[in-house]
Amino acid sequence: MSDDRRGGGSPEWGRVGPEDPTEDPATYPAMKVPSTEIEPSEQPTVAVPTGDGPPGDETPTVRRKVPNTRIGGLWATLILSAIVLIFLLVFILQNTDPVAINFLWLTGTLPTGVALLFAAIAGMLLVAVPGTWRILQLRREAQKH
């Protein structure tokens, strides 16, 4: 065997791949064909067409992540709030028996559901007012620095 690589056969020793390493995907990563498999993600995805062909065209689609936004969070909160309000309305409509309410010097009668709704609102205010006050304090303190 000859050491001459210009000949027709392959050498018994040495390099078997192409002379230029940038032509070999095994030694030059930029030559590798990107994987067509899409990794499963925890984020919702949207299909984006890659071609401008007719609607029946079989062009592949690229999936990209859709970021979480404040509007999306607000929408979920609104739906949850609507469900809670429906349950609250059903509760009030089912508990219409009058109940005597005494608070300090005030006396009156209200349906049971309405009385419990007022009690819940008062409890939320007892938590929200001091919490709002503390948040405002912290914001003023953060703006000073």
Score class of each variant (00 low, 15 high):
S2A: 01
R5I: 00
R6K: 05
R6H: 03
G7N: 04
G7A: 10
S10Y: 11
E12D: 11
E12Y: 06
R15S: 07
V16Q: 15
G17K: 06
G17E: 09
E19I: 15
E19M: 12
D20T: 09
T22Q: 15
T22F: 13
E23C: 13
D24L: 01
P25N: 08
P29S: 13
A30R: 12
K32I: 14
K32C: 12
V33M: 03
P34K: 03
S35V: 10
P40R: 05
E42A: 08
T45P: 00
V46C: 08
A47Q: 10
V48L: 11
V48K: 11
P49D: 09
G51W: 02
D52K: 08
P55C: 09
G56T: 08
D57Q: 15
E58A: 11
E58Q: 09
T59I: 10
T59S: 11
T61K: 06
V62P: 04
R63Q: 15
R64P: 00
K65I: 12
V66G: 06
N68E: 15
I71W: 10
G73N: 07
G73D: 11
L80P: 01
L80R: 11
S81V: 04
A82G: 11
L85I: 13
L88M: 12
L89A: 15
V90M: 14
I92K: 01
L93P: 00
N95L: 00
A100T: 00
N102C: 03
L104I: 00
L106P: 02
G108K: 01
T109V: 01
T109F: 00
T109S: 00
L110K: 00
T112V: 06
T112Q: 02
A115N: 01
I121V: 14
I121N: 10
G123C: 09
G123D: 04
G123T: 05
M124I: 06
W133G: 12
L136R: 14
R140S: 09
H145Q: 13
